[in-house]
Amino acid sequence: MTEDAPKTLLYENGAEGKICLTNILGNLMVETRKIRSRKRVILSVLSVIVVLGGWFVLTTVLRWVPPAFLPPPQNILTDFFRLLNKSYVGHTLIGHTLVSLQIVLGGFFLAVLIGIPLGIMMGWFKRIEAIVDPMFQLLRPIPPLAWIPLSLLWFGIGISSKIFVIWLSAFVPCVINAYTGIRLTEPLLVKAALGLGVKRQWDLLREVAIPSALPVILGGVRIGLGSAWMTLVAAELLASDAGLGYMMQMARRALEPSIIILGMLIIGILGAIMARGLQMLEKRICPWVMDKER
């Protein structure tokens, strides 16, 4: 953050003088970028085709790879359509997905709701930091999914034990980023606000520290979501009677790798969609953050 100042300085000095030159250079670069990007698209498409084609040829045409090891790609598609309305180990594909989503979102929102205010308080009030931080440092190195057995013991095998573990996994990044974000508040901006007549701590926190920490806080929310998603899979693999992880575990026992891969793909796609959604939300909430800083 503090390193930013000289950079902007460099950029601004003489920015006007460069306009003509950069325009010309810019046009040239746009041209070459167009050519490059076309080549890029072709190569990318080719690469996907080659991988999928190779997969198909190896499993279906040449049959070098047994389907119990790696199923042909089309099997995954047919399984997808088959499980859309046919129940597999208790639920349809949509049913399992909804169970998983419910747990992830439940734990995640609880984590955001509790974690961000706690992190902000830790960043702002020295005493709260001194009390909470050491315990936090003590518990932080333990991977959240290592809590699964204890959580099962405490909350039973139902939904609450999973929500607890997922809450824990998303909670940690939310707190840490909120805390760091507040601590990174530019002291100059605090000085400016004080000099403009802000008198109460609360106003300083509300007007200066929280907005300046917001991009960092949202980054923590995004990490938290990813972490929650991963922990969910572990929890469902270990102890569950529904959900995508459970479905995959059962498919492993039944030696149906196509359903495992189907589960992996759905988990990946949903995770990517949620991350993307959060990114868009970030852009909405923090319009002042330039793209290059994201």
Binding site: M230, V233, I260
Partner: peptide
């Protein structure tokens, strides 16, 4: 990349 590494366990 978006597939959590843990989801690879069954496979």
């Amino acid at each position: 990349r978006p597939i959590p590494p843990i989801a690879w366990i069954p496979l």
